[in-house]
């Protein structure tokens, strides 16, 4: 090789470019009305609506239907801002030329992934705070004071966010175009929200086969984990089994993290379906 290229060595690091990518991704996300309405606002609207519609107190406890709904909706909110957000976002990037342009620039691929993950993380934290705010203000959900419960909240949030984000990145390859991406991502999201006992409460009242179906996916376990943070143990008879099953929650979510990572590595495509 005879040619000196550019000015190697002074190219910015992948970590720094990842931060720049995150900034541009966030800017783009919050300027796209579709994304903000369907990904960010929709879970809050559903929580407010269902919380207002559901009424009554579960027998044997002082937990209202709205209080029961709120932690599950936090889980669904996370699934929306990670799984749906990343799935549609990456499918769109593949379709509209974003990925092609980035591959044409001297950008390490990891910078793109870092940018997407940071963007999803920021949006997810914002979503969670919004839903918690609605739950506390409108539905009298009490924030726990026991640090052990916040510790549970922390690991469920972390594992759940990671699992759903990886599943979203993997699922982005299923959408053929940007236009179909919304439908391709929202359908499984809505189905899972029902069979995981989020939109339908309590989870224990779901038909057996649907419970089995929901138990295969992370949303059910994430919702159960958050309920264990915000609800008293007196609600346990309404669960599928009368236990919070923390060990099993951690196991399923971790398994989805690993499986999701493997799926991403095997299915991720930089190119659209036009072939190479």
């Amino acid at each position: 090789m005879t040619t000196t290229l550019g000015r190697p060595g002074t190219r910015p690091s992948a970590a720094r470019l990842g931060l720049y990518r995150a900034a541009i991704e966030l800017k783009t996300f919050f300027r796209e009305r579709d994304a903000v309405v369907f990904t960010f606002a929709l879970p809050a609207v559903i929580l407010a609506l269902l919380g207002a519609i559901f009424d009554g107190v579960y027998p044997g406890s002082d937990v209202t239907s709205a209080e029961y709904l709120a932690p599950s909706m936090i889980a669904a909110g996370i699934a929306s801002t990670t799984f749906v957000n990343l799935g549609t976002g990456i499918a769109t990037d593949r379709d509209d030329g974003t990925l092609r342009r980035l591959r044409g620039a001297p950008m390490p691929p990891s910078a793109y992934v870092i940018g997407k993950i940071l963007m999803a993380l920021v949006v997810t934290v914002g979503e969670t705070l919004l839903l918690l705010g609605i739950a506390v203000v409108a539905f009298d959900v009490r924030l726990p004071t026991d640090p052990a419960r916040w510790f549970t909240f922390g690991w469920v949030f972390l594992l759940g966010t990671t699992a759903c984000a990886l599943a979203g990145i993997a699922a982005s390859s299923l959408a053929g175009s940007a236009r179909s991406a919304g439908a391709v991502m929202h359908l499984p999201y809505l189905v899972l929200a029902f069979v995981s006992g989020v939109f339908f409460t309590p989870v224990g009242a779901l038909p057996g086969p649907l419970i089995t179906l929901g138990s295969l996916f992370p949303l059910k376990w994430m919702a159960q984990g958050f309920r264990s943070v915000f609800l008293p143990d007196s609600i346990l008879p309404q669960e599928v089994v009368p236990s919070w099953e923390h060990g099993r929650i951690a196991l399923v979510l971790a398994a989805w993290c690993i499986g999701g990572m493997l799926l991403c590595l095997t299915t991720f495509r930089w190119h659209g379906r036009r072939g190479r």
């Binding site: 550019g6 000015r7 190697p8 060595g9 002074t10 190219r11 910015p12 470019l17 720049y20 541009i24 620039a105 001297p106 950008m107």
Partner: peptide, 8 residues
């Protein structure tokens, strides 16, 4: 944004 990817 795209200027940031390049060394000079």
């Amino acid at each position: 944004h795209f200027a940031r990817y390049y060394p000079e």
